[in-house]
């Protein structure tokens, strides 16, 4: 180990790290590392982030599972990445989605979503629903009980991903129907909702009936919910 580190340090091979003082534009700007060569326990996360960085709009590439990659870990790491990037949407919503105006978590008028982060589900205002759902997802997805490892995941824990996905989707839909400008700006930058929809459809994580957002441009086709009334 000593020798290897020394060798590496001397020979100046590529070190994929962000040095303090480096410019924001250089953050994580290093040559791609082939997935096969990643020996870290965080290889899947590394690979996903690397692919997103290359082109956030290329959903095919981002969601193309590497050969011999465990399916559960793949979905799990993608969901982590979604929740993380959704922080960006939550930050934007914080400035506009006020509890006085959006007193309930709604998308269309058809549903009120109760916040499951509480002992008893609660009718949290939309912004709280958003924050509580993301915080709860962070706790669940990092829980030592359900996800002690990032290399292999129990089948029973993979089953938990579905409920997180359903809740997370409501954040997108609330933003879409109530804060369209924020949604569009965020989507333009990140393609996150498109990616998410593609993800949950591809792996049939949530049923198509729940996906109430109209088809976003250049999105893979999703069957649309009939008889939907927009707010």
């Amino acid at each position: 180990m000593t020798k290897m580190a020394e060798e590496q340090w001397r020979s100046g091979v590529i070190l994929r790290r962000n040095r303090p003082g480096s410019s924001a534009k250089d953050f994580r700007r290093w040559p791609d590392e082939p997935f096969e060569e990643m020996d870290s326990t965080l290889a899947v996360q590394q690979f996903i982030q690397q692919t997103i960085r290359r082109d956030p709009a290329n959903l095919e590439a981002i969601l193309k599972i590497p050969e011999a990659q465990d399916d559960g870990v793949w979905k799990y790491e993608h969901l982590r990445q979604f929740c993380m990037e959704l922080n960006g949407l939550a930050v934007r919503l914080q400035s506009e989605c006020k509890p006085e105006i959006c007193t309930q978590m709604t998308a269309t008028e058809q549903w009120i979503f109760l916040c499951a982060a509480h002992k008893t589900p609660k009718e949290c205002p939309a912004i709280d629903y958003t924050r509580h759902t993301l915080d709860g997802a962070a706790c669940l997805l990092n829980s030592n009980k359900y996800f002690p490892s990032r290399v292999s995941i129990k089948e029973s824990s993979v089953a938990k991903l579905g409920s997180v996905c359903r809740r997370v989707y409501r954040i997108f839909s609330h933003a879409y129907f109530h804060h369209r400008a924020i949604f569009d700006a965020f989507e333009k930058e990140t393609h996150l909702c498109k990616r998410f929809t593609y993800f949950v459809t591809k792996y049939s994580i949530i049923s198509k009936e729940i996906l109430i957002l109209p088809k976003l441009e250049d999105e893979t086709p999703i069957a649309q919910q009939p008889g939907e009334s927009e707010a």
């Binding site: 009120i112 979503f113 109760l114 499951a116 589900p121 706790c139 829980s143 409920s163 997180v164 359903r166």
Partner: peptide, 21 residues
């Protein structure tokens, strides 16, 4: 509270969606 919350995450899930306005 915390353990219940974990339970909520999976069990309450379908409950909340069924709540019609």
């Amino acid at each position: 509270f915390l353990s219940n919350q974990e339970m909520d995450m999976d069990e309450i899930d379908d409950l909340d969606a069924k709540q019609m306005h």
